[in-house]
Simulated scan of single mutants.
Amino acid sequence: MNEVNREKIVSELKSIPGLKGIVGCSIGGNSMESAILLYYVAGELSDQELERVVRRVDDIEVSIHYNLREIDPVVHAIADCLDGKITIKHESGHPFGIVNSSYAAEIHYGRILWETPDRPITAMKKKLSAQEAYPEKLRQATIAYFMKEAALSLDNGHSSAMQGGIHYASGSFFQAVSSWVQVIHALNGKFLLSEKGGVKHANQLPITPKQFRVRVNQVYRYFAANNPKLAYCEIDMLESEMNVLVGSFAEAMEG
């Protein structure tokens, strides 16, 4: 989206009652802002006015891709993250679920295009950055929570795979890898916006298993070939490397 179109969209959107902030954010991790996040107050946003504005924007041939964010739950999610509390909300279209830290990531990476005079988005950004670039309580909680989730998923999948349940095992592996992606980002002090493209992004970070993306894809090939033994040989090595990375990080923190 170019700057002229962005200004047109913002000038139209900011008049909507109940809207508190407009933020440009790359949901898929692309360096360009691919979506607009609209932060609003529950019960005050005018859906009819929003629809009218979107139609007006369409009439001037400017496409708009937006996502709504009720502001109070985002404030609470950030408070929980700073306090080391991890939650996942299961929602249609999100096979892994929405981790509360993703809302913090949107605030952290998002570019404020407009906000009300009380500056609620700026306030959330300041809370996130008040301690350090990546909150330590969030890092510790993410590592502990998702390493446990990964281990449980792999245990369940392994027993199923050896009985011919390749479909279930593949799903369990997906859950484990998605959990590892959360851990890898935390180890590197990076917020994770979405599970989409997570393996690719994790593969590019300094602290990550060797050839992470290639090996993850190889496991799916083994499952597709109905070869769970080879799949779990690779999975076991990946899990071992993840444990080493987490252990090395813990030692560095203690030292």
Score class of each variant (00 low, 15 high):
226 N>F: 15
172 S>F: 06
180 W>V: 04
187 L>C: 02
168 Y>W: 07
227 N>H: 12
157 G>E: 07
241 E>L: 10
178 S>D: 09
221 R>N: 07
220 Y>K: 05
173 F>R: 03
168 Y>V: 15
190 K>V: 12
195 E>P: 09
236 D>H: 14
239 E>G: 10
228 P>M: 11
173 F>A: 08
236 D>T: 15
239 E>R: 02
203 N>A: 07
225 A>E: 15
192 L>E: 08
223 F>N: 03
241 E>H: 06
178 S>K: 07
242 M>I: 11
202 A>S: 01
180 W>S: 05
196 K>S: 13
247 G>T: 12
236 D>R: 14
155 D>F: 12
167 H>W: 12
209 P>K: 07
194 S>D: 11
179 S>P: 05
182 Q>W: 03
199 V>P: 01
177 V>D: 04
236 D>N: 15
219 V>Q: 01
187 L>D: 07
232 Y>L: 05
214 V>Q: 09
225 A>S: 13
213 R>K: 13
191 F>V: 10
244 V>C: 06
165 G>D: 09
224 A>K: 09
163 Q>R: 15
191 F>R: 10
211 Q>A: 15
182 Q>K: 13
201 H>T: 14
202 A>K: 04
153 S>V: 01
243 N>C: 10
226 N>V: 01
202 A>H: 05
246 V>F: 00
241 E>K: 03
229 K>H: 13
245 L>G: 07
198 G>T: 06
208 T>R: 12
168 Y>D: 14
173 F>Y: 11
166 I>Y: 15
181 V>M: 03
153 S>R: 00
177 V>W: 01
251 E>Y: 09
156 N>C: 07
214 V>D: 06
153 S>D: 05
182 Q>E: 14
197 G>S: 10
205 L>M: 11
214 V>C: 00
163 Q>W: 03
230 L>S: 13
251 E>M: 11
203 N>Y: 07
248 S>I: 00
196 K>Y: 12
160 S>H: 03
198 G>N: 07
240 S>R: 04
210 K>L: 12
158 H>I: 06
234 E>M: 13
246 V>R: 01
220 Y>Q: 07
198 G>R: 03
247 G>Y: 05
177 V>N: 02
176 A>Q: 03
175 Q>K: 08
